[in-house]
Nucleic acid binder design. Structure first.
Length: 271
DNA sequence: CCCGGAACCTGAAGGC
DNA sequence: TGCCTTCAGGTTCCGG
């Protein structure tokens, strides 16, 4: 599942290859992935545009075009971007869109589940408004985190998954952060004590930073644009834990459902 | 406003 | 072996 560290890795790998290139054409193999706009109009506005920059906000990838418009990509759960070129015999399986560049490169938007989204916008205000501070940014302060938690009764895991509260945390890193902080994911957000809040705050920043450091996690269907894989999942303690054994206490890792999300946690280590 | 659950999708995995 | 059901989960939408 692409979360902040995975999207950051995609951006870092993709940017040097595509910045400065011009989009000669886009093949939409699944038109409905274009949101908020008629696909024909979308193609008109994207074709011929130079790629000025590639950035990330939360789990959104933002391609800045010469016209000033931004091409927003969201990989959702099973999306990935693969670099190839026009000599490829055929696109990868589940390719839903192909961005053709003027130097012969192709960027394939691959997505088995068809949840992925492309959107062309004049500015990023619309998505910025949906996102809270980035976990590693200066405006994500202890005070902000603590104040936010105190106002909510939802399970703490559900709350830290809200993009409007913290941008970029998804299911895997939420589980890892709660494990590192020793907190039961079902606890009401406002029930956390000061020391627990502090531990969770630090844990969120640490698991996200580690995720980026290891090039993201490669579980289920996530691949880097160059075909390599990240290793962040090798450092996970509970998320997608195959052995079902806690790396700290040796006890069983259990899978429960919190707010409809599969949740891995260690009942002995997390209270 | 807040909460929880469903919908969007389809491949993979598990049950009978 | 093969059909059928269930599960996966980022985001948005909807009902209470």
């Amino acid at each position: 599942m692409p979360e902040l560290p995975e999207v950051e890795t995609v951006k870092n790998q993709l940017a040097p290859h595509i910045t400065g290139r011009t989009i000669t054409n886009v093949s939409l193999l699944w038109e409905r992935m274009v949101k908020g706009q008629d696909p024909t109009e979308f193609l008109t506005l994207v074709t011929g545009q130079k790629i000025m920059d590639v950035t990330r906000h939360g789990k959104y990838l933002i391609v800045h075009l010469g016209s000033g418009n931004k091409l927003i990509l969201h990989l959702k759960m099973t999306g990935s971007l693969i670099l190839g070129n026009k000599t490829d015999a055929e696109p990868p399986q589940y390719a839903r869109a192909i961005i053709h560049l003027d130097d012969g490169q192709n960027v394939y938007f691959r997505d088995p589940r068809k949840f992925g989204v492309m959107k062309l916008v004049a500015d990023t205000k619309e998505i910025d408004a949906k996102l809270g501070p980035e976990p590693l940014a200066e405006d994500f302060t202890m005070q902000y985190f603590s104040d936010g938690l105190g106002k909510r009764t939802a399970p703490v895991k559900a709350f830290i998954l809200e993009q409007k509260f913290i941008a970029g945390v998804g299911n895997m890193y939420a589980d890892e952060a709660l494990f590192a902080a020793g907190i039961d994911p079902r606890r009401p957000a406002n029930s956390l004590k000061k020391t627990e809040i502090k531990r969770l705050y630090t844990a969120i920043r640490e698991v996200i930073a580690a995720g980026i450091k290891y090039g993201g996690a490669s579980v289920v269907t996530y691949y880097h644009p160059d075909g390599s894989v990240g290793t962040a999942h090798e450092h996970f303690n509970v998320a997608h834990n195959q052995k079902k054994i806690c790396t700290v206490c040796g006890g069983p890792v259990e899978r429960i459902v919190v707010r409809g999300r599969g949740t891995y946690y260690c009942p002995r280590c997390q209270k």
